[in-house]
């Protein structure tokens, strides 16, 4: 701790990162229709209004289906890619991995817009299914990033021992590899779920008439009357995200301990 000023700066930075989010619960419980200081009083009205809203209910259901499917599919694709990437070398690896990881930097509007063109051109009707297609695409690079660490910290001699003892490829994967990378898989599914739950642009382009949570929120933001309820909804969403992420981080660390790898940091 040679430089205390750097430490102070770090804490100030954290405060700056969190400050806007801290406003959510404050106004979610505030008994006033406009979002402004001074605060009026305590109320739970906004939460009960939230639970009574039918469109919101449908949006939640859609978002859960989309996020759940995305988590499973993106992680499955991630397992293939991370396994291939960490274990094998093959021609064209760089370009192939580059293409798969491209959505990390490509603006989402490019993905949403180009998918929309293709889907309309081949005449596929927009639904939550098409949103899943897009979300899997953007979540897969993140799952690969997480799973890469899991697969890279895997001791290859364990698999070789299983082959030597007469296990086949599949049974080795099931009995040896899978249990060791399982924490990584769970953590990547949770991350993919969170990404899909929060994603707006692609859902905005590809959902057709079906509401998802972010598109519903976006549609309500222009009505000042609805804002306090959105604050309540936001509080719930942020809480849910934090819970999911905390579980993901906990599982990831346990997994690292299991394989004996050094903890080098966060998800990416």
């Amino acid at each position: 701790m040679k430089l205390p000023s750097l430490r102070i700066y770090a804490f100030a930075y954290l405060a700056f990162l969190y400050a806007p989010i801290l406003l959510l619960p404050i106004f979610a419980f505030n008994d006033g229709t406009i979002i402004a200081f001074p605060l009026k009083g305590f109320t739970l009205d906004w939460f009960s209004q939230m639970f009574a809203n039918d469109t919101l209910g449908r949006a939640v259901r859609n978002s859960m289906i989309i996020a759940g499917s995305t988590a499973v599919l993106a992680t499955a694709f991630g397992i293939f890619a991370a396994r291939a990437g960490t274990r094998f070398s093959f021609p064209g690896k760089g370009p192939i991995m580059g293409l798969i990881m491209l959505p990390l930097v490509l603006p989402e509007i490019m993905i949403g817009g180009s998918l929309l063109l293709v889907l309309l051109a081949i005449g596929i009707e927009l639904s939550i299914l098409t949103v899943i297609l897009g979300h899997v695409l953007i979540a897969t690079p993140y799952t690969i990033a997480i799973l890469n660490t899991a697969f890279a910290s895997l001791d290859r001699s364990l698999e070789e021992a299983a082959y030597d003892l007469g296990e086949g490829k599949l049974s080795t994967f099931r009995l040896i590899t899978l249990p060791l990378v399982l924490p990584g898989i769970i953590s990547s599914m949770l991350i993919a779920f969170t990404i899909s739950l929060d994603e707006f642009i692609i859902a905005f382009f590809l959902a057709g008439n079906e509401p998802t949570l972010p598109t519903y929120i976006f549609s309500q933001l222009r009505f000042p009357k609805q804002i306090p309820m959105i604050m309540a909804l936001g509080t719930c969403l942020v809480l849910l995200s934090i819970i999911l992420l905390t579980i993901a981080e906990y599982v990831r660390r346990r997994g690292l301990k299991k394989t004996g790898a050094k903890d080098t940091g966060g998800f990416l």
Partner: peptide, 11 residues
């Protein structure tokens, strides 16, 4: 540091 990044961008 990463938590705020993962929580609802729109909000």
């Amino acid at each position: 540091i990463t938590i705020p990044f993962w929580t609802s961008y729109l909000i």
